[in-house]
Simulated assay, not measured.
Amino acid sequence: MTSTTLGIKTVLHPVSDVAKAKEVYTALLGFAPQTDETYYVGFEVEGQHIGLVPGGGPQGMTYPVTYWHVPDIEAKLAEVTEAGGTVQEPVRDVGGGRLVATFTDPDGNVLGLLQDH
C-alpha cells in the first residue's frame, strides 16, 4: 500500500547574502517575510512556503530543494527507496515537531519530504 502526498508546499533556496535575497523575494512577492532571522527567512504565499537559507544551512544546500508534504514521512521514504531512490538526508526533526528528509531519484535529483505534526 502506498501513502499519499499533499503536494509540493515548501521550496528552500540557498542564498549567499540573505539581506539582498530578502529584498528580491520581498519585491517579487509584494510583502515582507513572516519569518525573518539571520539563519532563515520564510515567506508564506498562497499555500506555499518559500524559504531562504543562508549559505545553504547546515545541510550545505547548493541548489533549491522542493519539499513534498506527506502525512507519514517514514512510510513515504521507505516507498521511494524501495522504488529506487537513495536517502541523502535521513528523517530529522527541525523543530516544532516538523520532520524532514531528502532523497535522490535515479538521476541524482534531490527531493525533499516534510511531515508536520
Results as ranks from 00 to 15, higher is better:
residue 1 M to Q: 12
residue 3 S to F: 01
residue 3 S to V: 06
residue 4 T to N: 05
residue 5 T to K: 12
residue 7 G to C: 03
residue 7 G to K: 03
residue 9 K to M: 10
residue 10 T to G: 06
residue 11 V to K: 02
residue 11 V to E: 04
residue 11 V to C: 07
residue 12 L to T: 12
residue 15 V to M: 02
residue 16 S to R: 08
residue 18 V to M: 10
residue 19 A to W: 05
residue 19 A to D: 12
residue 21 A to M: 13
residue 21 A to E: 13
residue 22 K to G: 01
residue 22 K to P: 04
residue 22 K to E: 07
residue 23 E to R: 13
residue 24 V to L: 05
residue 24 V to K: 09
residue 25 Y to D: 01
residue 26 T to H: 06
residue 27 A to L: 09
residue 29 L to V: 06
residue 29 L to S: 06
residue 30 G to T: 10
residue 30 G to Q: 00
residue 30 G to D: 04
residue 30 G to N: 08
residue 32 A to M: 13
residue 32 A to S: 13
residue 32 A to H: 12
residue 33 P to C: 11
residue 34 Q to M: 05
residue 34 Q to V: 11
residue 35 T to C: 11
residue 36 D to E: 15
residue 37 E to Q: 15
residue 37 E to V: 10
residue 38 T to M: 05
residue 38 T to D: 15
residue 39 Y to A: 13
residue 40 Y to D: 04
residue 41 V to S: 11
residue 41 V to E: 10
residue 42 G to R: 15
residue 42 G to M: 14
residue 43 F to S: 08
residue 43 F to I: 13
residue 45 V to Y: 04
residue 45 V to C: 03
residue 47 G to E: 12
residue 47 G to D: 09
residue 48 Q to M: 14
residue 49 H to N: 10
residue 50 I to H: 08
residue 51 G to S: 13
residue 51 G to Y: 14
residue 52 L to Y: 14
residue 54 P to K: 03
residue 54 P to V: 14
residue 55 G to Q: 12
residue 57 G to Y: 08
residue 58 P to T: 12
residue 60 G to V: 12
residue 60 G to Y: 06
residue 61 M to W: 03
residue 62 T to V: 14
residue 63 Y to M: 10
residue 63 Y to G: 08
residue 66 T to L: 09
residue 67 Y to M: 06
residue 68 W to G: 00
residue 70 V to R: 06
residue 70 V to Q: 10
residue 72 D to E: 13
residue 72 D to M: 09
residue 73 I to W: 01
residue 74 E to L: 02
residue 75 A to C: 02
residue 76 K to E: 11
residue 78 A to Y: 01
residue 79 E to M: 00
residue 80 V to H: 01
residue 81 T to V: 14
residue 82 E to N: 13
residue 85 G to T: 04
residue 85 G to W: 04
residue 85 G to R: 02
residue 86 T to H: 01
residue 86 T to W: 01
residue 87 V to H: 09
residue 88 Q to E: 14
residue 89 E to T: 09
residue 90 P to S: 11
residue 90 P to V: 08
residue 91 V to Q: 01
residue 93 D to F: 02
residue 93 D to V: 00
residue 94 V to T: 11
residue 94 V to G: 03
residue 94 V to H: 06
residue 95 G to Y: 05
residue 95 G to T: 07
residue 96 G to R: 00
residue 97 G to C: 00
residue 98 R to G: 01
residue 98 R to E: 14
residue 100 V to M: 15
residue 103 F to A: 05
residue 103 F to P: 00
residue 103 F to D: 01
residue 103 F to T: 07
residue 105 D to A: 00
residue 105 D to W: 01
residue 105 D to R: 00
residue 106 P to M: 08
residue 107 D to F: 14
residue 107 D to N: 13
residue 107 D to I: 07
residue 107 D to M: 08
residue 109 N to R: 09
residue 110 V to T: 11
residue 110 V to Y: 00
residue 110 V to N: 03
residue 111 L to D: 07
residue 112 G to E: 05
residue 112 G to K: 07
residue 112 G to P: 03
residue 112 G to I: 05
residue 112 G to M: 07
residue 114 L to Q: 09
residue 115 Q to L: 07
residue 115 Q to K: 07
residue 115 Q to Y: 09
residue 117 H to N: 04
